[in-house]
Amino acid sequence: MIEDDILAHALACAPAECCGLVVGDEYVRCRNVASAPESSFEIHPDDWSDCEDKGEITAVVHSHPGGVPFLSEADRIAQCRSGLPWWLVCDGAVHKFRCVPPLLGRKFEHGVMDCYTVMRDAYHLCGHDLPDFDRQDNWWANGQDLYFENMADGGFVRLGDDAEILPGDVFLMCLDLAGQNVPKATHSAIYIGNQQILHQRPNALSKRDVFGGFWQKITHSTWRYQKWQKSDFTGILNDLAASSNSR
Rank of each mutant, 00 (worst) to 15 (best):
residue 126 C to Y: 03
residue 37 P to E: 15
residue 39 S to R: 06
residue 78 A to H: 02
residue 108 F to T: 09
residue 187 H to E: 11
residue 15 P to Y: 09
residue 30 C to Q: 11
residue 96 K to R: 15
residue 70 F to M: 10
residue 79 Q to C: 06
residue 85 P to N: 12
residue 26 E to R: 13
residue 40 S to N: 11
residue 202 P to I: 06
residue 105 G to C: 08
residue 247 R to N: 09
residue 150 N to A: 08
residue 82 S to R: 06
residue 182 V to Y: 07
residue 95 H to L: 04
residue 19 C to G: 12
residue 208 R to H: 10
residue 31 R to T: 15
residue 41 F to N: 01
residue 103 L to A: 13
residue 101 P to N: 14
residue 107 K to C: 07
residue 182 V to I: 12
residue 24 G to Q: 11
residue 21 L to Y: 10
residue 71 L to R: 08
residue 222 T to S: 06
residue 89 V to K: 00
residue 123 Y to D: 12
residue 117 T to W: 01
residue 203 N to K: 13
residue 160 G to Y: 02
residue 190 I to M: 15
residue 119 M to C: 15
residue 100 V to F: 10
residue 81 R to F: 03
residue 141 A to F: 02
residue 186 T to I: 04
residue 177 L to G: 15
residue 46 D to R: 08
residue 237 L to I: 14
residue 38 E to M: 07
residue 201 R to T: 13
residue 100 V to P: 00
residue 214 F to Q: 13
residue 154 G to T: 08
residue 142 N to D: 10
residue 90 C to E: 11
residue 183 P to H: 13
residue 231 S to F: 03
residue 207 K to S: 14
residue 204 A to L: 07
residue 76 R to K: 11
residue 109 E to F: 03
residue 111 G to E: 08
residue 223 W to R: 00
residue 232 D to L: 04
residue 77 I to N: 02
residue 50 D to W: 02
residue 16 A to D: 15
residue 127 G to L: 05
residue 139 W to D: 10
residue 18 C to L: 04
residue 138 N to E: 14
residue 60 V to K: 08
residue 218 I to C: 09
residue 115 C to R: 03
residue 216 Q to C: 05
residue 48 W to I: 06
residue 152 A to F: 05
residue 13 C to G: 01
residue 246 S to P: 00
residue 32 N to S: 11
residue 161 D to R: 07
residue 165 I to W: 05
residue 222 T to I: 12
residue 197 I to K: 09
residue 55 G to M: 09
residue 2 I to A: 13
residue 91 D to F: 02
residue 192 I to R: 10
residue 138 N to G: 03
residue 16 A to H: 09
residue 163 A to C: 08
residue 78 A to P: 00
residue 186 T to H: 07
residue 134 D to L: 09
residue 171 F to L: 15
residue 4 D to F: 02
residue 57 I to A: 07
residue 40 S to A: 15
residue 155 G to P: 01
residue 154 G to Q: 05
residue 203 N to S: 13
residue 67 G to F: 06
residue 200 Q to R: 08
residue 54 K to H: 03
residue 218 I to W: 02
residue 162 D to C: 08
residue 124 H to Q: 11
residue 149 E to M: 09
residue 239 D to K: 06
residue 238 N to L: 02
residue 44 H to I: 01
residue 141 A to L: 07
residue 169 D to W: 04
residue 36 A to Y: 04
residue 66 G to S: 07
residue 13 C to Q: 14
residue 137 D to S: 10
residue 182 V to S: 13
residue 108 F to N: 14
residue 167 P to L: 13
residue 60 V to N: 04
residue 235 G to I: 05
residue 161 D to Y: 00
residue 205 L to T: 09
residue 118 V to H: 10
residue 38 E to C: 04
residue 43 I to E: 04
residue 56 E to G: 02
residue 112 V to P: 00
residue 53 D to W: 01
residue 169 D to K: 05
residue 59 A to L: 09
residue 73 E to H: 06
residue 109 E to W: 01
residue 129 D to E: 15
